[in-house]
Amino acid sequence: MRNLIAFLQRFRIFLVFAMLQILALSWYVTYLSFPRNQFLTTNNNIAIQILEWEHDLTKHFNLSKNNTQLQWENTYWRKRQPQFMYQLSRGKVKINDTIFEQQYTYIPAEVINSSVDRRNNYFTLNVGSAQGIKRGMGVFCHEGVVGVIHYASKHYSLVKTVLTEDINIDVNIHMKKSDLPGFIKWDGRDPRYGTVTGINNDLRIKKWSTVVTRGGSGIFPKGIPVGKVSHTEPIEGQALWKVDILFAADYRRLQRVYVIKNLHMAEQTALEARIPRDDE
C-alpha cells in the first residue's frame, strides 16, 4: 500500500496528464462516430447565443452577392409559375394533379457557424427539431449539395458537410449514354475539390461532366448538383478510376441552405427493413 502511494506521489503529474489526455481523446474518438453529448458542441445554449451575435455582425458581409443569387433564383422559379405563362389551350377544366405527388419539402435555413479547413467540417444551422429537422436529413444550397444533419437540438442543428472524412453520399457521374454511380469522399486538403470513389474504369469519363446526386438512399432527391469532374486517374492494381471533382458550391462563403424533408422516407425505410438480412 505504501509503495502504491509512493508510486502515485512520484508519478502524479504524469498520471493527471494521462487522465486528461484519455478524457479528451475518448471524447474526440467517440463523438466522430455518434453524437452522445450535445453540451460539448456548438449546439449548447451559451455557445450558440454567442455565435448568433457574431453571425448578426458578420452576416451582411456577402449581402449583395447573396441578394443577386436569390433574385436569380426567384426569377428562375417565377418563370415556371402557371399565372405567368401564356395559356395555349383555353377552356379546359383544371383538375388536381394525380400524376405527380410531392415527395420532398424544403426547410430554409441559415448557416451561423462554419469551418472548411479542418479534417472534419461541421456547419451550425439556425433551425432545429422545432422546425422538423431530424438526424440524417439532407442539406443543400442553391449551387449544390452541402451535407447531412448530424445532430438536431430544439432550435439549432449541426450539419456533417461533404467536407468530412466519412460522408457517404451516393452520386452519379452524368454521361451521355449512362450514369456512373459512386460515392463522394473528401481528402481534407482543399475545400474546393473532392473525389468520387467506386467508379469502374471500363468507361472513359469526359472531363467536366457533371456529378449529381443519385437519390437512392432517400436523403437527397435525384439530380441535385454536386460538382464537375476535374481530373481522372487510374488507381494502380484496381479496375477503378480515381475521380477528382470540383465542387459546385463554394463552401467557404455559404450562408443560405435548404434542409430536405423526404415525405416518403418512413415508407422507404419500412419497406427496406423487410429485406432479409444475412446472419453473420
Binding site: Y31, T42, S115
Partner: peptide, 27 residues
C-alpha cells in the same frame, strides 16, 4: 494542465472539434 483543459474545452465547443484542442493544449 487543468487550466489548459478548460481552455481547450471552450475552444472545442466553439469549433466542433470534440477534444482535439483540449488534447493538444494539455500536452
Amino acid at each position: 494542465m487543468g487550466i489548459a483543459f478548460l481552455m481547450g474545452l471552450v475552444i472545442d465547443i466553439f469549433s466542433n472539434t470534440y477534444g482535439l484542442n483540449t488534447s493538444a493544449l494539455v500536452l
